[in-house]
């Protein structure tokens, strides 16, 4: 669906998927949600087609299919995350291979630390404390994280301080968007924190709707306001092969096929040719969606 066929006014922020991918510069810190939380897989494929390089991925708070795909395609220089996994399909093969070969820098974190760093950025404060983590090697490998004694205690009580983190670009795939740039993400409110904290937010949407999402009291609480959204593109079935909330389920067979194919370089290349680089590679998925 495009704005022409839907009859909506074309606005500056709406662009094609390819334009959206082109707007994410090489070398950017790109924040992505995990597989169960509106992962922008079609955008990841478009980034691969445009030959993106040097991306610094951030998993919010963990990483999955899109991250593995981008790593395998050579688009990634580092990944900051609390875990990379394909869920029921097992380990993320291109990530594991890249760690073994040392071709991608891994900056390990733990889930609440990533949320907290984004919350600090959202509030415009330089850092926020977090309990736990003391004694973990994750902390030992984070020179940017600091431990101080709780200034409100009578001495002692060490506590972790985390620096605010503002990704260059945040990307996710929302169910719907409107002409004001508002997008609906339902209860996945960590995406709202991510949007508030990021310098730039690009969103693919399953569909555009008439009217204003924020005008509907029942939808508003699940909406991220257009004031945070810089660019939007329609990508039908754009989370495939992952699921999208209650819109469609994950294509588990395809993710398993990927997990198996991507165990080898050759298998991954073949997968890329068939499902990412081939012309009109998305046609079967669009049909499957109907």
């Amino acid at each position: 669906m495009t704005s022409a066929t839907s009859g909506l006014t074309v606005r500056p922020m709406e662009m094609s998927l390819e334009q959206l991918a082109a707007s994410i510069p090489d070398g950017a810190m790109l924040a992505l949600p995990p597989d169960n939380s509106l992962s922008p897989c079609e955008l990841a494929r478009a980034l691969i087609r445009r030959g993106a390089r040097g991306l610094q991925l951030l998993g919010v708070p963990v990483s999955g299919f899109a991250t593995d795909l981008l790593i395998g395609a050579g688009c990634v220089v580092s990944v900051q995350t609390s875990a990379v996994t394909l869920g029921e399909a097992g380990t993320a093969p291109r990530f594991v291979d890249a760690v073994k070969r040392g071709t991608v820098k891994v900056i390990d974190a733990t889930c609440p630390a990533i949320h907290t760093m984004l919350q600090a950025a959202e509030k415009g404060v330089p850092f926020m404390p977090l309990r736990g983590v003391l004694g973990s090697y994750v902390l030992a490998h984070r020179p940017d994280w600091k431990v101080i004694d709780n200034p409100f205690s009578d001495g002692g009580d060490p506590i972790l301080l985390l620096p605010a983190l503002s990704p260059d670009v945040a990307a996710f795939h929302a169910i719907m968007g409107d002409a004001e740039g508002n997008v609906f993400v339902g209860r996945r409110r960590e995406l709202a924190t991510l949007a508030h904290a990021s310098r730039r937010v690009v969103v693919t949407v399953e569909r555009l709707i008439e009217g204003n999402l924020l005008a509907d009291e029942r939808l508003a609480a699940g909406v991220i306001s257009g004031m945070y959204v810089d660019a939007m593109a329609v990508a039908v079935h754009g989370a495939w092969p992952l699921g999208l909330l209650d819109e469609y389920a994950a294509d588990a067979a395809h993710v398993a096929e990927y997990a198996s194919a991507a165990r080898t370089d050759a298998g991954f290349r073949e997968y890329l040719d068939r499902h990412v680089l081939a012309p009109r590679a998305q046609a079967p998925r669009a049909q499957a969606a109907e």
């Binding site: 708070p61 609390s82 875990a83 760690v99 974190a109 736990g132 994750v138 902390l139």
Partner: peptide, 27 residues
């Protein structure tokens, strides 16, 4: 250990990563 074996960050065998364990185990 949810990170991996061998040298940091799991150069011998990499596991997915710590998830929330470094926090939840304390809390």
């Amino acid at each position: 250990n949810l990170v991996g074996t061998g040298d940091w960050p799991g150069r011998t065998a990499r596991f997915p990563g710590s998830f929330g364990s470094a926090f939840m185990y304390f809390m």
